[in-house]
Design a binder for these strands. Structure first.
Length: 894
RNA sequence: GGGCGAAUAGCUCAGCUGGUUCAGAGCGCCUGCCUUACACGCAGGAUGUCGGGGGUUCGAAUCCCUCUUCGCCCACCA
């Protein structure tokens, strides 16, 4: 590592080499970090779906986790980040089905076993690519603990959970209306249905009374379901229909007699106040049907075509064709009362966006209320903390209204349901078992396993303990359960996060983590979510290749504040990622420069904060940068602790660029060259503060910080910044005087530069400056005289009262005046107006300030220190304005 | 239909407990510089009715109400 460093930082080779080095050293395993000492700190990675390679959302999610895990690791915790991938039942099955479709096949052509084998092939490929991507962005997860949700161990946990919940009466099989996707041909949970507002219609249909005495009008958004109607319902108190309750309707098209029933669920104010009842195709109707012992007629096939239960001419029609046909027939029979435009929410499959069909079927459910209660309590008693806080409301209101969870899926890819049905006549036993069964435990007869698989979330809700070996009681489980922070996208709060809390409390007796950080979504500049179908995605790997992983990470972190989305422009990667790349380059060059000036060091450079030098040897600038560094330690540490990662990143950025590079390094250059007086002190201070900056930045930019940090003298070959101790605040570093005094130096240099620019003084030309002020106000400036001369490009600076006329004038915030004689270069008129404008600005401030202080209410009601502060401001502004006006007089301005 | 959030420079956003970061940062723009760490850089500069209206207060970008516009979550009125 001693080859000369290139002036332009090139992340690609450095990153891959360092990553290999980290993993070879096993730095990401908690065992090799702080053996036995630090408290564990555990993050469970939301396992990416093996459907496809990762997108920017994953980039953000995993960067946040990595920042937190690296932060806590450096703070001495035994940090464990558990990685994994999710088999993603329905999603992965769909992806492979689409692949097959391209080849002209369906999964049924292949058969179950061959299809599942095919999915495995996809999984092996994608799963490996995903892990590579996670590594490419620098994720410091413990890969030795990587799991896949269909692994043997996690499958055992799934089975144990199912059986145990069944034993407890919390898993049951039921015949209910569920959400059915006619494309995926499976049941879905309520959470898997996305409601979307659509402009639909409300058809008002006339149902003739059986006795021919008239009709009842019912309104529906899905006319085709009338083929399965088995009643018409009205509210029991609805006067309009009193005489009709108990009567019958002759159902058009089907010619079936169905009763008119009274049910409280009917809203008399909606539509006609009468509702058609289709128990097989609507959850509300199903309930009405139960209350009135109505038949359920299933008029749809799984594919949402009209079934054999309907009249011949409708059979086989797609649901929408059937809808048109039904409406047309009502119309021609004169039974279509009217059609209204109607805006309503329609459920769509969250995986293929097909409109959901409520369907009556046998499915397995988890009884959720008993699980939800403790999960709700954990929030109410403050055990769980949400960031941002308001997400806690979403969590609790979801739990309060929770409904049972349909967990069976009519898919082939997933954990097979551990239930066996006995086929022996007269037995029919249903066995729920931890072990595979080959015979009925009751009669010894032949059994067949339930064909269905479990909801993919039924395995992922166990991850916080199943990934650690549960149901076995393993050392990992003892040590790393419960974990600490969950970093998740808000979309999966209910699917995953809330359910993990329920399972954790139920099976482990403790919440799986206490802090839940829900970050935003990555969107394009039109605020659209990045997606493959919109083509507005950004490939994280492309960004890593072009800008480096550190730049990717920094951009994501700095673009994100608590509770807001990250906006990136897919059309213009440069504007999104160049600033971070530039920052990396800046850091690289600062490091390069510092390193190149350490050879002449004669004193040790390492050690606790500025311990290598004595206080008395420090210049004002040294004291200033040490104080700024310390303030940055505090600011960044607090920001990381509060999940304000963008603020932490910004604080370090400011320190490195605006303080260290722009000022301190510039200023200290003469001391560093050769064997200058104070050279060792400067070297010690610059190394010290740069080292702190690298450590503070490491969680966000792990690669470049490591690359630089390792090159500093005195580092052991095996030392890594990733386990270097986190910088601590140092009371001795605090130095308000230095902050104030050096601020004045900066202000003076800025004022002189401003005058130079104003009058177009050539950069190469040196000028003289005269500074006048009281001894007290110029003491600090005198200390840094050489700095002022160099950075303001002066021939000399003198401290004396000034009566010269022709030049540029300025006045600092402590009333010190500056004068630059410019001879012919100056345009007196221009200087007059420049001074005039500035004086006017100050006088306006003075005026409003006088008004404020003249206000009795303010003086008497505002706190004394505020009033004092405002008085001081007034004095300063007044005097500043006075100095400028005097200069104008001197110049003979009109 | 219920709940929540956001609106600040051309763009992306900070501004946390009302008053010393109070109108800011980065990008973009303008001017001048290849000053031997860095042109992915340096120095300087311009840019705002803090979404509209009302209120509370000595004092509001900040707190309250209201309107407008965007976004998110929830919802079995067919």
């Amino acid at each position: 590592m001693s080859e000369p460093l290139a002036p332009q930082y090139n992340p690609s080779t450095i990153e891959s080499e360092l990553y290999r080095w980290w993993t070879e050293r096993g730095l990401f395993a908690p065992e090799s970090q702080a053996p036995g000492s630090g408290e564990p700190y555990v993050i469970q990675m939301p396992p990416p779906n093996v459907t496809a390679v990762l997108h920017m959302g994953h980039g953000l999610n995993n960067t946040v986790q990595d920042v937190l895990i690296r932060f806590e690791r450096m703070r001495g915790r035994r940090a464990l980040w558990v990685p994994g991938t999710d088999h993603a039942g329905i999603a992965t099955q769909n992806v492979v089905e689409r692949e097959l479709a391209q080849e002209g096949f369906t999964r049924f052509d292949l058969g179950r076993d061959a299809f599942v084998e095919r999915v495995w092939a996809h999984v092996r490929e994608t799963g490996a690519a995903i892990l590579d991507q996670l590594k490419a962005i620098g994720s410091s997860a413990d890969w030795s603990r990587t799991y896949f949700t269909l692994d043997e161990g996690l499958s055992r946990a799934v089975r144990e959970t199912f059986v145990r919940l069944h034993e407890e009466g919390l898993v049951y099989r039921g015949h209910y209306i569920i959400n059915w996707c006619p494309r995926c041909l499976t049941a879905l949970s309520n959470e898997e249905v996305e409601k979307e507002e659509v402009e639909g219609h409300l058809w008002h249909l006339r149902y003739p009374l059986a006795d021919g005495s008239g009709h009842i009008t019912v309104a529906t958004t899905r006319p085709e379901t009338m083929l399965g109607d088995t009643a018409v319902a009205v509210h029991p108190d609805d006067e309009r229909y009193h005489g009709l309750i108990g009567g019958e309707i002759r159902l058009p098209l089907v010619d079936r007699l169905i009763p008119i029933v009274a049910d409280e669920a009917v809203d008399p104010a909606f539509g006609s106040g009468a509702v058609k009842v289709t128990p097989a195709h609507d959850p509300a109707d199903f309930d009405i049907g139960r209350r009135h012992s109505l038949a359920s007629i299933d008029v749809m096939t799984p594919e949402a075509r009209i079934s054999l239960a309907a009249p011949d001419r409708f059979q086989g029609l797609d649901r929408y064709e059937a809808r048109r046909r039904v409406v047309a027939e009502f119309q021609s029979a004169g039974l279509l009362d009217r059609v209204e435009a109607h805006r309503h929410a329609v459920g769509h499959c969250y995986r293929c966006n097909t409109v959901i069909e409520p369907r009556l079927s046998d499915q397995w459910f988890v009884r959720m209320e008993p699980l939800a209660k403790p999960a709700l309590e954990a929030y109410r008693n403050g055990t769980l903390r949400f960031v941002p806080e308001r997400r806690g409301d979403d969590y609790s209101s979801w739990l309060e209204g929770i409904r049972d969870w349909c967990i069976s899926r009519q898919l082939w890819w997933g954990h097979r349901i551990p239930v066996w049905y006995c086929d022996a006549t007269g037995c029919g036993r249903v066995s729920v078992s931890r072990q595979d069964l080959s015979a009925c435990p009751g009669c010894g007869g032949p059994v067949r396993q339930d064909e269905d698989v479990l909801d993919t979330w039924f395995s992922s809700w166990l991850v916080p303990f199943s990934s650690l070996g549960w149901p076995n009681r393993t050392p990992d489980l003892d040590t790393y359960y419960p974990g600490h922070t969950m970093v998740s996208a808000p979309e999966i709060l209910f699917f995953w996060v809330a359910r993990m809390i329920m399972s954790g409390l139920h099976f482990m007796g403790e919440v799986p983590y206490t802090d839940i950080y829900l970050h935003g979504t990555v969107r394009d500049t039109q605020h659209r979510k990045m997606s493959k179908s919109l083509g507005n995605g950004i490939d994280p790997l492309e960004v890593v290749e072009r800008y480096g992983a550190d730049a990717l990470r920094y951009s994501l972190i700095s673009g994100m504040s608590v509770g807001t989305d990250v906006i990136l422009d897919p059309q213009d990667l440069e504007s999104s990622f160049a600033p971070a790349r530039n920052f990396a380059n800046k850091l690289w060059n600062a490091g390069r420069f510092i390193l190149s000036n350490l050879e002449s060091a004669t004193r040790p450079l390492a050690g606790p904060h500025a311990a290598a030098v004595r206080r008395a040897e420090l210049t004002l600038a040294d004291r200033w940068i040490i104080a700024r560094c310390d303030a940055t330690v505090v600011e960044a540490t607090q920001a990381y602790e509060r999940f304000r990662l963008n603020e932490a990143a910004a604080a370090v950025y400011r320190f490195i660029w605006s303080d260290l590079a722009d000022w301190y390094i510039e200023l200290v250059k003469p001391r560093l060259y050769g064997d200058q007086p104070g050279g060792d002190v400067a070297r010690a201070v610059v190394v010290q503060t740069f080292d702190v900056a690298l450590r503070l930045l490491h969680p966000v930019m792990p690669f470049i910080t490591e690359a630089l940090w390792r090159r500093f003298p005195g580092r052991a070959e095996t030392a890594s910044i990733s386990v270097a101790p986190w910088p601590r605040q140092d009371q001795r570093a605090q130095d308000p005087d230095a902050l104030r005094d050096f601020g004045l130096v900066q202000e003076l240099i800025g004022a002189i530069r401003g005058i130079r620019a104003e009058y177009g003084v050539q950069p190469g030309q040196v000028v003289r400056a005269v500074v006048s002020g009281s001894d007290g106000s110029t003491a600090a400036l005198k200390q840094e005289r050489a700095t002022i001369v160099r950075l303001a490009k002066l021939s000399a600076v003198t401290f004396a009262p000034n009566q010269e006329r022709i030049g540029g004038h300025a006045v600092l915030s402590n009333r010190t005046a500056v004068f630059i004689p410019l001879g012919e270069a100056i345009d007196i008129g221009r200087e007059c107006s420049r001074l005039g404008t500035e004086a006017e600005r100050l006088l306006r401030l003075v005026e409003s300030q006088e008004k404020k202080l003249g206000n009795e209410q303010f003086v008497s009601r505002a706190p004394a220190e505020v009033v004092d502060r405002e008085r001081e401001k007034l004095t300063t502004w007044k005097e500043q304005a006075g100095v400028l006006l005097k200069k104008r007089e001197l110049l003979g301005c009109s």
